[in-house]
């Protein structure tokens, strides 16, 4: 094959991912931005989608429920990410130790993360059922509660419950990434520390933490960006209830788009969420840039 033809084919193959990005990311993004500045109410009876400036953003801003949702989303993100990072770190440290059956445990660890969200949602809906759920059966058997607790039907505990479900589902990914980072730490450093009589906590803060911080930080940013736009698990378990106690911004975007067909409002909410994610992504890139 002629060199120029092969180069041409190679060039085309390299452009394909870019084309995919443009087609499935850039174009929809531009469309969403345009819709967020337009009157895009599909049920209004109007076929015109006039430019309305910041009206949609103003509507979102002034919506009392939006701020409540934003607060719930903030708490959900904060505690969910904290839980995943902490549990992920603890499990990674445990799995980094030498013991029998470590291989099997590592394999089992992947299961929650590999399970589809819908399966996890249904599993926990049954597990936490106040009449027939395993959790309540245990609590009642241990006489810790006088009657079954409606975990996902009580407004005061529904949010912590969905946070725990989210942590259970996603901490394995964090644990596996941190485990890989831990295994890249040279053993000689720990041996030298042992020689110097360092205690376990000292070894953790002087060796383990600094050597894995960059991976931990990347995971933190990725988890924040991923959790802030959470939708499927919460939608399937509580639907945003009870009494909107678990109503995340992601769920409202769904309602505005697919129940009320107010695409302008939904796009404005989506763009605001995206801007927040961009800020987090910017922090990550600054950190990477400084490292280099």
């Amino acid at each position: 094959m002629k060199k120029t033809t092969r180069r041409g084919i190679e060039a085309t193959l390299f452009i394909l991912p870019l084309l995919t990005l443009v087609l499935f990311v850039a174009i929809p993004l531009v469309q969403a931005v345009i819709m967020s500045f337009s009157d895009y109410d599909m049920l209004s009876g109007s076929r015109e989608h006039a430019f309305v400036g910041l009206d949609n953003y103003q509507t979102v801003w002034e919506k009392a429920r939006f701020w409540k949702m934003a607060a719930i989303t903030g708490w959900y993100t904060l505690w969910s990410v904290f839980g995943k990072m902490l549990l992920g770190l603890i499990v990674a440290l445990l799995l980094n130790a030498k013991f029998r059956g470590k291989g099997i445990l590592r394999s089992l660890l992947v299961i929650p993360w590999a399970m589809p969200g819908i399966v996890v949602a249904f599993l926990f809906t049954l597990f936490l059922d106040s009449e027939y759920g395993v959790m309540n059966a245990l609590l009642l058997a241990l006489k810790l509660v006088p009657e079954g607790v409606p975990f996902i039907s009580r407004a005061d505990i529904a949010l912590p419950v969905v946070i725990l479900i989210g942590v259970w589902k996603n901490f394995p990914f964090v644990a596996l990434m941190l485990l890989a980072a831990l295994q890249n730490i040279p053993k000689e450093l720990y041996e030298a520390a042992d020689v110097d009589g360092a205690k376990p906590l000292q070894k953790f803060f002087r060796i383990t933490w600094p050597m894995t911080f960059s991976v931990w930080f990347i995971m933190l940013i990725l988890q924040l960006v991923g959790t802030i736009k959470e939708f499927d698990l919460v939608y399937l378990v509580t639907g945003g209830g009870p009494a909107l106690a678990t109503n995340l911004v992601g769920l409202d975007i769904y309602d505005q788009s697919f129940r009320f067909f107010k695409l302008g409002i939904a796009s404005a909410e989506g763009i605001l969420l995206m801007l927040l994610s961009l800020i987090l992504a910017f922090i990550y890139y600054r950190y990477e840039f400084r490292k280099r």
């Binding site: 009580r154 407004a155 209830g241 009870p242 009494a243 909107l244 106690a245 309602d255 009320f260």
Partner: peptide, 14 residues
């Protein structure tokens, strides 16, 4: 949407 959430809030005691 408003009615469903309102009714649910009341009936579950939230």
């Amino acid at each position: 949407g408003v009615i469903r959430q309102t009714f649910n809030s009341i009936l579950v005691g939230a």
